[in-house]
Design a protein around this nucleic acid. Sequence first.
RNA 1: GCCCGGAUGGUGGAAUGGUAGACACAGCGGACUUAAAAUCCGCUGGGGCCUAAGGCUCCGUGUCGGUUCAAGUCCGACUCCGGGCACCA
Length: 807
Amino acid sequence: MSAASGYDHITIEAKWRKRWEEQKLHNTDVHKAERPFYNLMMFPYPSAEGLHVGNVFAFLGSDIYARFTRMQGYDVFEPMGFDAFGMHSENYALKIGTNPRELTPRSIRHFREKQMKMLGAMFDWSHEVQTTDPAYYKWTQWIFIQLFKQGLAYKKKSPVNWCPSCKTVLADEQVMGGACERCRTEVGKRDLEQWYFRITKYAQRLLDNLDWIDWSETTKMAQRNWIGRSDGADLVFELQGRDETLTVFTTRPDTIFGATYMVLAPEHPLVGSLATDGYRDQVKAYVAKASRESEIERQDETREKTGVFTGSHGINPATGNPIPIWISDYVLMGYGTGAIMAVPAHDQRDFEFARKFELAIVQVISPDGREVPLEQAYVDPGVIINSGEFNGIPSEESKSKMTEWLAGEGKAEPKVNYRLRDWCISRQRYWGPPIPIIYCDKCGAIAVPDEDLPVMLPELADYRPDGTGLSPLARSEEFINTACPACGGPAKRETDVNDNFLDSAWYFLRYPSTEFPDRAFDTNITKKWLPVDMYIGGNEHACLHLMYTRFITMALHDAGLIEFEEPFKTFRAHGMIIKDGDKMSKSRGNIVNPDEYIENFGADCLRSYLMFMGPYLEGGDFRDEGIKGVRHFLERVWRRITEVRPTGEEIADPETLYAMHFATKAVTEDIRRLSYNTALARLMEMMNHAYKADIKTRIYYETLLRLLAPFAPHLAEELWERMGHGETILVSGWPAYDEIHTRKSEIEFVVQINGKVRSRIRVPADLSQEELEPIVFADEKVKEYTSGKTIVKKILVRNKLMNIVVR
RNA sequence: GCCCGGAUGGUGGAAUGGUAGACACAGCGGACUUAAAAUCCGCUGGGGCCUAAGGCUCCGUGUCGGUUCAAGUCCGACUCCGGGCACCA
């Protein structure tokens, strides 16, 4: 960029970077802090490609808030670290044939030294956390054990999502549209023994707390949907000619009289015994086919319903009629009881199935009490019909009535179900903390004793996953074989490593306590700093990281280890940035490389531009023409302050007083609500006024610099120093404003006639209706529009307008 | 299909139910300059009318309706775009 203004960002930014580091200005004394404020942002995954501009956008928005808070006198703690375990790093390591043990430190170094330190953020590197550090994952393992001891970790064999490319299992939320979230490979099913965390035990609490935590509404909504509470009833169906019963879950007990058949999931345990002789072969074939099908095939929305009849019948508990029992893959084993009562008249899926297999359709709810021919299922509420004594009752009301009635017969029970599933945390991979469990033939599965932690991840020459369904660790005899901590006999180690999301589910607890090698987090320090005051990150983590983190926090709370059960007082989801109206991606070749922009325009300029681009919480459009405007603004600030010799006088001019106080108020309020783009607009106005009115007063520029400091910290420091200040601008205090001066003494007052603007008059502020009316009605335009008309109404909006309604 | 967002000038975007388009980019004009760049200043939603500058007037926030003295903002239906979830009984 031009040096015409003398604004040399390279020199200035290097100077302040060095000075801040020498003075340890951004290191927080976690013990002595008097007004602690924990400012957290989601830590990055240090990929070999380098820092993405999306990360930078997230970090800077958080850092600006931190700087603002610090200038208000808080002891702000802004730690940073690296989420460096996981398949992404491991896959990349495999691809280029370098061990992740070598690759990861290299990536981290590049991230930290070459990129993150250039951003001008207040990162406190003295509390850095790396999840791959044994001193950290020791405590990740310890947390696993805490959950294990509470009965929240358990092992079960079940069909799991299997990514054939990553050669590992995936949690439900890591499968997107039937494909692996990381590598996009089609996900299949496998029967494997896995470790799970019982997050479902916390489903209701995770849901309830959403009512009071101060989080972005969009994030809360995503979590509510993911938890997916549904209220209904378990209904018991007798089986014709057998002693057993079959329980189904339904949210529509009001439709029970319309249940004309039942469907079991192919994996349902009763499938085998319900298949009668004539149907056994077709049932077997169907079950086999369903187990072979992939997620993608089963999720194809266009495909037709399939299924087979078992030959058996259940008894509808309301009507007493026998109804056929079918199996179909549209019923999922993992939800409810894995069996449903089908009400084709009032459920679209059942309707399609019944049409295809010519099963009876009985309408029991009608919009107006009359039966109508159905072209599709009628799913709305209405009036009950064809249901004996319940006829005529509104369907919503009959839900509880029918449940009560059947409950009286011992055939129903009100029930709540959640869509949320337990968290599968086993990974059959190398690059993660080994799950700290030892298997002994005599003693069973035993947690590794605390004094033996960490279970070190062994150095393996060959760390490739092999598709056996076992981790590469299983190939290391040295690793597997150990002694049972209980009986001392020969025992074997668990060979799975934990899901990467466990590493990041507790990192916020570690940051303040990094100095303690002998505990995961210190009680006093934790009491002082947590929960986190402000957490900023992407909404893509609403159902993953943020849900897991809340769960781990609750579990630790219940174990008596921490006092709070919600980790983040405030969470804000920032928006996404696009480039020239298009998504950023490698294939489009429109990736913004932050390094280049820092080099060419300066970190201050990139910071300010990213925030000016659009509303922080909604995201924005990165355009190269746009950044020039911000650079231009910073140069105007630079030029003005370096060229003017500011004087120490008081400001007398009311307009200048207004410009300064108004901007102070607006910027303060805007930053508080993360409306950074408008805050910058107010600063630009303040600068425009400085040129226009040729302001020379010192206080005006000092105010401007302090308001600008969170956005452009290097520039602000440099000019602050040049104005004769010895101390950093960070401790100069946040500017105060006087409410009196944030309002103009003379205003432009609008007069509307019948809602249309007809005249604008200049009047003193704060006039009453009595004072205004003579002035308004003396106005020529007002006279013109009201003459000969009847005035029906006059509405005064103080200091804004008067609307005169005439007829 | 369901759940969340969103749609405002040539462009990015402002606007507690109260003057739509703040701020910025691009464009145009002026000053400075031999010239250009840079800089500073001004104009800049669309149409029409009158005029000397300037003024007057109508239309305008995805579409159609509604509420209100007043709607970009609230309500109802719809279209399109982005994101998330997806046979969850």
